Amino acid sequence: MEIEWLLAYLALGGFVGFFAGLLGVGGGGIMVPMLTTLFAAQSVPREHLVHLALGTSMAAIVMTSLSSLRAHHKHGAVRWDIVKGIAPGVLAGTFAGTFVASRVPTAPLAVFFACFMAYVSVQMILNVKPKPSRALPGPLGLAGVGGGIGLISALVAIGGGSLSVPFMTWCNVKMQNAIGTSAAIGLPIALAGALGYLINGWGAGNLPPGSVGYVYLPALVLLSVLSGVTAPIGARLAHRLPVATLKKIFAAVLVLLSLKMLHTVLG
């Protein structure tokens, strides 16, 4: 791999890891459009661009989720009772979602990703906070919510934070706990998603050397190197910095990257 690609993947991993820890997100909103652009520059066939970006992103989120989870757990911010209840649905929904995504052509998948990121960005910019109005549902309700979160997360390769954090705050979970718990929920999402994209891409033709299914191993390794270092830094700063302001900056970045992704795929 040429030095410029190595540096690009390392820098992307560091940036994603920081925001994963800071905001309780998996980082797919950044990784997918950036990986799509980098893969296109490396002459990956157009029909595999978004699928390979989604699969590689999901695999990379495993490391960022682990680092972010450990950091939030040290701060006592993870509600493990919620994680236990929502995890079965998350695993099933995410795994099933990879089969859906793998059968959708690149262009529609890119458009869906961009539209969802636009929705997430508007929420962040407006600092939308659902009014706390109820308690958490029972085990079946949590599993059902987890299935929905997992399904959408697989289609856009996110750790679920943009869905699970608003849901938990709506159910009167404190914001700090919602962010920490979201980081923990991101781990089963990433594991099920990575496995699903690996299986669905197995045997696909015309993938670049170093790919295992829809996971590009060289990018995965380099992304994981720095994300594991910067995620705990972001998690520590989440308890000190004005997160609402940082969310607006992050949202603007998501919009620009999504537009760039659409230009790469459709242009």
Rank of each mutant, 00 (worst) to 15 (best):
W5C: 05
A11G: 10
G13M: 12
G14Y: 04
G14H: 11
G14P: 01
V16F: 09
G24F: 10
G26D: 01
G27R: 12
G28H: 00
M31G: 02
L35W: 00
L35A: 07
T36C: 01
L38V: 00
F39V: 10
Q42R: 13
S43P: 08
V44W: 03
P45A: 13
V50Y: 09
L52N: 07
L52D: 01
V62N: 03
M63S: 06
S67C: 09
R70D: 06
H72Y: 14
K84N: 06
G85H: 00
G89D: 11
L91H: 01
G93W: 08
G97D: 00
T98F: 08
V100K: 15
V104N: 11
P105W: 11
P108Y: 03
L109E: 13
L109M: 07
A118T: 00
V122R: 01
L126H: 04
N127E: 14
P130L: 12
K131Q: 14
R134P: 12
P137N: 05
G141S: 02
L142W: 07
I152N: 03
S162P: 13
S164V: 10
C171M: 08
V173R: 06
V173Y: 00
T181A: 03
A183R: 10
A184M: 15
P188E: 05
I189C: 02
L191Y: 12
A194T: 13
L195I: 14
L195Q: 09
I199K: 14
G203M: 13
G205I: 04
G210C: 10
G213F: 02
V221P: 07
V221R: 05
V221C: 03
L222H: 00
V225H: 06
V225W: 00
V229H: 05
L237V: 07
P242R: 12
P242K: 09
K248Q: 13
A252Q: 02
L257Y: 10
S258A: 11
T264V: 09
V265A: 03
